[in-house]
Structures are given as C-alpha cells and as structure tokens.
C-alpha cells in the first residue's frame, strides 16, 4: 500500500473511531500485532460504482463490547453492550468506509455500499489478514486492530 493512501486511511479510521466511540488509535508495525487470543471478529463490506473494492476491520472480540459501551455511554459488561457488540463493529466499519471513500473519490463520486457482514476468525485467520499487503495495523486503546482496504481496478 502506498504511504499516502496509508496515511489517509489511518487518519480517517482514527478520526472515525474517536468521533463515534471516543477511542483513540495509533498505527502499529506488523511485528507488534501477532495474535494474542483465538477469537477475532472481522466486519467487511464491498463498494461499487465510480470506485469499487472492499474494506474490512478485524478486532479481538472483547474490543467490540468496549466499542458498543462507548458508543452508547454504558459499561462494557452491561447486557446491552454485549448484545450490540457486533452491530457496533459494523457501524464503525460503515462510518469508516463512508469517510474513506469521500476522502479518496471526492464528494461528486457515486458509490454504492453493501451491507456490512461480520464473521469470526481464529488466530490463523488473524495472521492471514495481518500479512495481506492491503492491511494496516493499529493499537486502539491498547487493542490490536487490522484495517484492510482494497481497490479493484
């Protein structure tokens, strides 16, 4: 991934997380992001139109409870945070995707977004995502996070 695009993605993603969930992220090197658990969630969506491709966010499951709690202003062990954890990850992806596409393609571009889908990954899935060229890594409030962005020519 080109450094300019990487910077743009980093800025937009960290800005979206900050505004939406009051969480703070900073870019991390790949060798800092080895798997630490065995249950991860990945939210992905595609986009087509003036620009086409796919975007995904991969996190440790526990971070989703934190995202939901922060978005809703409740404790992360609250039942509502548990119930809305997956939805919260989808929303972070949705907002990030919308902001990234506007930043890259401009406000006149017409791009259709798919509905975000979430699936589970194990440690090998995390490592596979981490090693993709289109993936950049972050620490968000000490949680490791992977953001993958791929444009289709």
């Amino acid at each position: 991934m080109k450094s300019k695009q990487k910077d743009l993605l980093s800025n937009v993603f960290c800005g979206a997380l900050e505004k939406l969930a009051f969480m703070f992220g900073e870019p991390a090197e790949r060798d800092e992001l080895s798997p630490t658990g065995n249950k991860y969630l990945t939210a992905g969506m595609t986009f087509t139109g003036d620009m086409s491709g796919e975007i995904s966010i991969t996190v440790v499951e526990g971070m989703c409870f934190e995202i939901a709690a922060n978005i809703l202003g409740i404790n992360s062990d609250d039942e509502q945070a548990m119930n809305l954890a997956v939805d919260s990850l989808k929303e972070v992806l949705n907002v990030t995707c919308g902001q990234v596409l506007t930043a890259i393609a401009g406000e006149k571009a017409l791009i259709n977004l798919s509905i975000p889908q979430v699936s589970e990954l194990d440690a090998s899935g995390w490592t596979e995502t981490l090693n993709k060229t289109e993936t950049i890594g972050f620490f968000v409030d000490d949680y490791p996070v992977l953001l993958s962005f791929l444009l289709v020519e």
Binding site: N94, V95, C97, G98, Q99, L101, T102, E107, K108, A109, L110, I111, L113
Partner: peptide, 9 residues
C-alpha cells in the same frame, strides 16, 4: 441519516 458523503447522492 447515513455514512455516505456523496453530494451527488
């Protein structure tokens, strides 16, 4: 209420 920023949309 949407994430989309397209002025055209």
């Amino acid at each position: 209420v949407s994430t989309e920023g397209s002025a055209t949309r």
